[in-house]
Design a protein around this nucleic acid. Sequence first.
DNA 1: ATCAAATCATTCGATATCAAAGTAATTGCC
DNA 2: GGCAATTACTTTGATATCGAATGATTTGAT
Lengths: 154, 154
Amino acid sequence: MGTHYRGRAAEVRALDTYIKLTRATSSVGVRLSRGLAEAGLTPTQLGVLEALLHLGPLGQRVLGGKLLMSGGNITTVVDNLERRRLVRRERRGDDRRHVTVHLTSEGRRLISRVFPGHVAAIVEAFSALTPAEQEQLGRLAKKLGRSVSRPGSA
Amino acid sequence: MGTHYRGRAAEVRALDTYIKLTRATSSVGVRLSRGLAEAGLTPTQLGVLEALLHLGPLGQRVLGGKLLMSGGNITTVVDNLERRRLVRRERRGDDRRHVTVHLTSEGRRLISRVFPGHVAAIVEAFSALTPAEQEQLGRLAKKLGRSVSRPGSA
DNA sequence: ATCAAATCATTCGATATCAAAGTAATTGCC
DNA sequence: GGCAATTACTTTGATATCGAATGATTTGAT
């Protein structure tokens, strides 16, 4: 008894949380995109350049893993960056299936210039929350993400 | 004094929270997309059908507002749904600029069948968090989203 | 009544994104 | 050594998404 009601309450609660979560994430994303648009970068392109800046040259497969993105998509994004001479592909000698993506000096210059402002925008977006709230939000998000990615317990 | 250090700490904290937030949201989205894919629906298409089911026929502009989506995109999504006979456009008589989007009976049947499973998937995704944690997450997400959407205070 | 401005939808050109199919190269097994 | 399976990337075809430009219609000001 009460199961029905509890079930509905659980539905309303989860749905409500889900909506707030996606809206918040979307809002932050939209805000950050604006700054990036001035540099002519999409969020994904920034992600690729940033990974290359901080981790050095990477294979496309690794890039896809870092950015939670399908392989087919990596090809497209790297294509677009390469066309603008921001990155350079290099076929690896020891295993010619692999392609290593490098920042060009131009790409390095761009990402070095843009990244600080991007971080500042993130800090500003989250300034609505106290440090403790940010940590709490991070903790809950991590817990949620972790459980969804794994085979689910219940 | 200390400003520099605090600045860096704030950056690390916001960045870390941001990454966890986007990853969690993305993971939940990916999980939900799977169930939708079986019904041949994208998340956006589901959103449109669900809005029409629960709110009745709507103008495209209103739909865009509900789903936080640009007008151009609404046209595309409604095009795709209309091609599958799940919705029907109707040019309004009193103001011929307006188009009202209706569910067809086929569309109503589909969304009625799919929606409960979608909700169940959301409940399951969030079951990793206790009710109190879900409410806390919702509260923080709402606070964050609200502040980002508005002209930002500080 | 007429012309300008505003509003709603569509079109267009980019990028993103995925899944599936295809190509190239490597590894493993016999 | 040679064929099968695996792995890495690319290609293809579909949807999503935005912003800017365009078209159609209505509203407002004179």
